[in-house]
């Protein structure tokens, strides 16, 4: 069967060509590996800085003081209303008794605060609310302030504003860096593949004279590009995988308060992206490069 022979020849030619041009193949694999490593490392850096920012954001607290004369059941009823506000993350109810206990803690056990206040707890019930992000805080505050049960709302306005500016900055810069690295990597890889094809320009030409159809020339190059892309991506992936694990355990040990993305889910997703992307770019790049020399 001609068809099975063609498949056989294509695979054989692809592997043979890598074996016969070891130097060039090695250089291409290395270039692709370095480009993908830089891209992968950048991705991880951006992912981690986003994570850091979002951790900081989730620390922002809104304290809601209710009116002092409110019945307990009315205080508790407010919870439903707060939970319905968009951007709401979590809340904690602080009954006035607990508020007093916290105050007593601060002043020290020896002062009998309740007695000093004449046996009446002057504190209101309160809520401690967290938003999903710092950009949601001011909206939530405005909503809560409209409830009649609410006396006053307190939050770190300045901190929120600064954090908001910082978060936006980190997101934009992260995106810009990723796009830049992606383009640079793409350019580097396609240029490398183009060069490996270019060195065999004459060979492609001769094949055409001997009567090879375009696809017969193209398929081995496609497979070869795929193989080189895959090898480069695997190399980059391996280095990233081992390097990231080592780096994370070092960070956790030496600066434990810095939040890092330590679950492997994100890492695996990035590695998959690199391997699929590298293989695809290698294969496509080489087919596109060959096309230029097929017109004989």
């Amino acid at each position: 069967m001609a068809f099975s022979s063609y498949i056989r020849y294509s695979f054989r030619d692809a592997f043979r060509s890598v074996a016969r041009h070891k130097g060039i193949a090695f250089a291409s694999v290395l270039t692709i590996a370095i480009s993908l490593f830089i891209l992968g490392a950048t991705l991880l850096l951006v992912v981690n800085s986003q994570y850091l920012v979002s951790t900081m954001e989730s620390e922002v607290e809104i304290i809601v003081f209710l009116k002092t004369d409110l019945e307990r059941q009315d205080s508790l009823a407010l919870q439903n209303k707060i939970e319905k506000i968009p951007g709401f993350h979590s809340l904690e109810f602080i009954p006035k008794e607990e508020g007093l206990a916290m105050l007593e803690d601060r002043f020290g056990k020896d002062t009998d605060l309740v007695k000093a206040l004449g046996g009446i707890n002057p504190l209101p019930d309160a809520y401690r609310v967290k938003a999903t992000g710092s950009d949601k805080v001011s909206f939530i505050v405005a909503e809560i302030e409209q409830f009649s049960e609410v006396e006053s709302v307190r939050y770190g306005k300045e901190l929120v504003d600064k954090l908001l500016a910082f978060t936006t900055w980190v997101r934009n810069v992260g995106l810009a860096v990723i796009i830049g690295m992606l383009l640079a990597g793409l350019f580097l890889i396609t240029t490398t593949i183009r060069l490996t094809v270019f060195t065999r320009k004459k060979e492609i030409n001769i094949m055409k004279y001997v009567g090879a159809a375009n696809w017969f020339i193209r398929i081995p190059f496609f497979l070869e590009g795929m193989l080189i892309g895959l090898l480069g991506a695997l190399l980059a992936g391996l280095v990233i995988y081992l390097g990231y694990d080592a780096l994370i355990s070092y960070v956790i040990k030496s600066v434990p308060f810095v939040p890092v993305v330590s679950d492997h889910e994100v890492l695996y997703r990035i590695l998959t992206l690199l391997i699929v992307g590298g293989t695809a770019i290698g294969a496509l790049g080489s087919v596109i490069a060959v096309r230029k020399y097929l017109k004989v």
Binding site: A2, F3, S5, Y9, M207, V210, G211, F216
Partner: peptide, 8 residues
């Protein structure tokens, strides 16, 4: 190669 291009 001249034969392979024809799927021999």
């Amino acid at each position: 190669f001249a034969l392979e291009v024809m799927g021999t």
